[in-house]
Amino acid sequence: MSDEPIISIRDLKNAFGDQVVHEGLDLDVRQGEILGVVGGSGTGKSVLMRSIIGLQEPVAGEISILGERIDMATAEENLDLRRRWGVLFQNGALFSTLTVAENVQVPLREFYKYLDEQLLNEIATYKVVMTGLPADAAPKYPSELSGGMRKRAGLARALALDPILLFLDEPTAGLDPIGAAAFDELIAELKEALGLTVFLITHDLDTLYTICDRIAVIADKKVIATGTIEELLATDHPWIQEYFNGPRGRAAVAAQG
């Protein structure tokens, strides 16, 4: 069961006009792992995520999630799939006119109309607390929260439907090192507790070292390597070597002891 990839991408091609972002991209995400996706700026990490979650129509190739081809799925099947993943966008993308608790309730209200008000409130609050926010953050508006708190609130909304698959787009970008480390820990903890599979785009070497089970490297329009850090270090691709053996890479290794 766990050998069956939860996301499988074959021969993906993405392009904006003449500018080709991905060509012949293959990638598997296995059940129950945290897959870190790295790549230089502009290599299309976010585009890859957007094409998996259906916000960007690929030019060619196939993407299967939980064994279903998303390009073949009917609108209804797509909606069904959507309930089974949560997405945390780079800046949280919280609805600014709703409070944090109401943000968390949005997907619940949309999909499960039979939940009563009291239960919705309780669910929203425990989700908020679960992501490490104080309970009194629930009735606040996103604009009243700090950047780090907003990310946690975004995570609470992503987890609203108890997804089995979680997409995170640079979750630790813009956080201070302590906040970033705490966020990494939170993701690892929630992954264990809820049995999540996590697709994580990051630039943060510490995140890669501490919580990622495998890492996929995007360069030259495709995934050039996947594996653990040790496996990646064994390859001789110049970008990978520079990435992990540059001054920041070495510092991250040193920090791991």
Partner: peptide
Amino acid sequence: VSCADEPQPAR
């Protein structure tokens, strides 16, 4: 979930 039980209204 029991660790996260802190009642708070949504608004």
